[in-house]
Amino acid sequence: MNKLLDIISKNNDFTTAQLAAMLNKSEDEIKAQIKELEDKGIIKGYKAVIDWNKVEDADVTAIIELKVTPKPETGFDDTAKIVMSYENVESVYLAASSRYDLIATVKGKTIQEIAEFVSKRLSTLENVIGTATSFVLTQYKGDGIVFYGTDEEEQRSMIL
């Protein structure tokens, strides 16, 4: 995998000069690479990673599996497009599973709000023949960062 993407996907706090040093390239090369990755739409944006467990009144998250009848020609894409068009839908995946075809993560103010969204918007879609909703209670890890139980770094005491 692209080493630059590997680094900035974990931590985007580095200056281009620092990235250049780490990757043994010139700063101009790094700037050009980043621009290219942005232009190609590989880098879609930069955002903060938030541990929502710690935020009061944070949204509820649900993982919703959808069983979908594929259409000739377009398969699951048409349904996926409709699902992803909703603003409260955070991500949509096509899965290779025997039980479900699409998996979506959805945010809402309350459990009721999400329940309503699933029953009124998703399960009523033409090709959706079944849904299963799981509500998230605790997020242990997100975007490769551990959220749970790492406040205290283990003391490394050997110091020779």
Binding site: A17, Q18, A21, N24
Partner: peptide
């Protein structure tokens, strides 16, 4: 190696 290059570069700067 990546960390080494970063730290050497920053110290020199």
């Amino acid at each position: 190696d990546m960390r080494r290059r970063l730290i050497v570069d920053e110290f020199c700067r």
